[in-house]
């Protein structure tokens, strides 16, 4: 099998897989999120009780995962648009993927303190 000529199993395929998986995960969260927000029509207490679970350390970790999924899906989505509409898009799809991954890593490092800080304070005291 000549190297580098197959789409299967290379950057193009794996970014496509990751795009699908993150997309489905985000969609399922969106259902739950609209339902929990709808509780503002029930009572302030009902809403605040449910939102309190979003502030627990375990759910904070899930929020970090959600941010990870959304950031990848957003950045890779822009790459897909570039592949489709930019005349050199297909030629530079690999370079663009590694740019996406690098940006994602930087943003995820930056999100550690804002997203997980309050959970750390709760677990280890302020």
């Amino acid at each position: 099998m000549p190297a580098g000529t197959l789409y299967r199993g290379r950057e193009g395929m794996w970014s496509w897989v990751a795009h699908r998986v993150t997309g489905v995960l985000i969609f399922f969260f969106l259902f739950v999120h609209v339902l929990d927000t709808a509780l503002v029509r029930v009572s302030p207490e009902a809403y605040d009780t449910v939102v309190a679970t979003y502030k627990t350390p375990i759910v904070a970790l899930l929020e970090y995962g959600l941010v990870a999924a959304i950031l990848f899906h957003a950045l890779n989505g822009l790459r897909v648009i570039a592949v489709d509409f930019w005349i050199k898009g297909a030629r530079y799809q690999k370079q663009m993927l590694w740019t996406v991954v690098a940006l994602w890593v930087v943003l995820m490092l930056g999100a550690i303190y804002p997203v997980l800080g309050h959970a750390a304070r709760e677990l280890f005291g302020s």
Binding site: V40, P44, Y47, D48, V51, Y54, K55, A60, E63, P114, V115, G117, H118
Partner: peptide, 9 residues
Amino acid sequence: GGVSKIGFA
């Protein structure tokens, strides 16, 4: 304050 400020208010 991140998620900790979210509430009905």
